[in-house]
Simulated assay, not measured.
Amino acid sequence: MPHEVRGVVAAKKGAPVEVQTIVVPDPGPGEVLVSVQACGVCHTDLHYRDGAVGDGFPFLLGHEAAGTVEAVGEGADGLRPGDYVVIAWRAPCGTCRSCLRGRPWYCFDSRNAAQSMTLLDGTPLTPALGIGAFARKTLVAAGQAVKVDPAARPEAAGLIGCGVMAGYGAAVHTGGVRRGDTVAVIGCGGVGCAAIAGAALAGARRVIAVDVDDAKLDGATRFGATDTVNSRGTEPVAAVRGLTGGFGVDVAIDAVGIAETYRQAFYMRDHAGTLVQVGVPDPATTVELPLIDLFSRGGALKSSWYGDCLPTRDFPILVDQYVRRRLDLGAFVSERIALDEVEAAFDRMRDGKVLRSVVVL
């Protein structure tokens, strides 16, 4: 029997979001119905609202979510009602060319629920990143619901579903930060701070946070930054090199995604160092670099997709780190809000006043 619940809908490009009644079907084969307990407000939701992620309006927003399985469809193996889960937007298919080559974190056919959630009049909703969790219930593919330790508070655990995993994975998986490395992270929002935390947990001996906001830089130290650089008044490449004996860092992470910060990260690297871009760029952004610098400096230039993660492997690990008090997920939660406060939370996000607002249901 379909379920009618309240959800946050972006009805048309650039318009304020609305809380509307939506219809969530019972799970079909390979699907699960999740009762959402908390869901973070991510920049990607704002991109959907503003029409920067396709034109599939109306969108049902929300994708950084934790909750409990309410019902399972046929074939949803390994899950049962009551299981505590974090929802992933990557659920590897197991059969595409990437999965078959042993690289499921690059799956080309990630699974989502086959049935649509709708408005009351039957209009299909496009769920953000295949999740749509700014609602009391959501329908996802079974592979998207990853069981984790129920000791983790949902407003903290849900953030692993996107921003924390993206940043942590950019450092640990894509960047391959190892014990004794030096690391610079440009941009100390939620993703950047997660990259800082990942680098610190991996054993980096120096983690340099770069931002234009002193308050964000102060916050970055809570996640493991050993040094901070305010690039509003200081040339950041020179500052990072000055902190590393003139050499530059082993891994430079651009968590902003604009041409200027990409170039800064490129030149912050030591010889043969690694650059990781995890900040989502505007589609129109381009970068120009001298080809001789690309050749002579060596190293690797990488883009990090979802922290190159495998949710079934990595979500439980990060939750365990949180439960053991080695990863302070609670520090990412700036405020707890209701469904009808999401639009105002977008404003605070634009102004850089929060790491994460979290809708608690």
Rank of each mutant, 00 (worst) to 15 (best):
A156R: 04
T138A: 10
V185D: 10
D109A: 15
R178L: 14
V191C: 06
G176I: 05
V177M: 10
A141D: 14
D109N: 15
A128T: 11
S110E: 13
A135N: 07
C188M: 15
P127G: 06
M117H: 03
L119R: 13
Q115R: 15
G163T: 09
A156P: 01
T123W: 11
A142R: 03
L119G: 10
A171Q: 07
R153W: 00
D121S: 11
D149R: 10
A145F: 08
G163M: 09
G132E: 05
R178W: 03
G122T: 12
I160F: 05
M165Y: 00
G130T: 09
R153C: 00
R153P: 13
R111H: 14
M117N: 02
A157C: 10
G169M: 11
T126C: 04
D121F: 09
N112D: 14
T118D: 03
P150L: 08
R178T: 14
I186G: 05
G130Q: 07
A152V: 14
A171I: 07
T126H: 13
G130E: 07
V140Y: 04
N112W: 07
S116K: 15
P150R: 08
N112L: 00
I131F: 06
G143M: 06
L129I: 10
M165D: 00
A113H: 03
L129K: 05
A133N: 03
A166N: 13
G158P: 02
A141W: 00
D121A: 11
V148W: 04
T123G: 11
G190K: 02
V183H: 07
R111I: 01
V183C: 12
V148L: 11
N112G: 04
K137S: 04
D149S: 13
I131G: 02
C188S: 12
I160P: 01
G132S: 08
I186K: 00
A151F: 01
G158H: 06
L129P: 00
T182L: 04
R136D: 14
T118K: 13
R153K: 15
A133H: 01
L119K: 09
K137P: 00
T174W: 02
V183Q: 08
D181A: 14
P150I: 09
A145R: 03
C162A: 09
Y168D: 05
T118M: 05
G143Q: 05
L119N: 09
G169L: 10
A156W: 11
R153M: 12
E155N: 13
T126V: 12
D121H: 11
L125T: 02
T182C: 07
L159K: 04
G169I: 11
G189S: 12
K147A: 14
A145I: 07
G180A: 14
L129Y: 03
A141T: 03
R178E: 15
V185P: 08
T138L: 07
V146C: 10
T123S: 12
G130L: 09
G175A: 09
I186R: 04
P154S: 13
K137L: 15
V140T: 07
A128L: 02
R111E: 14
L129E: 12
T138I: 05
P124Y: 08
A133C: 11
L159C: 10
G175D: 08
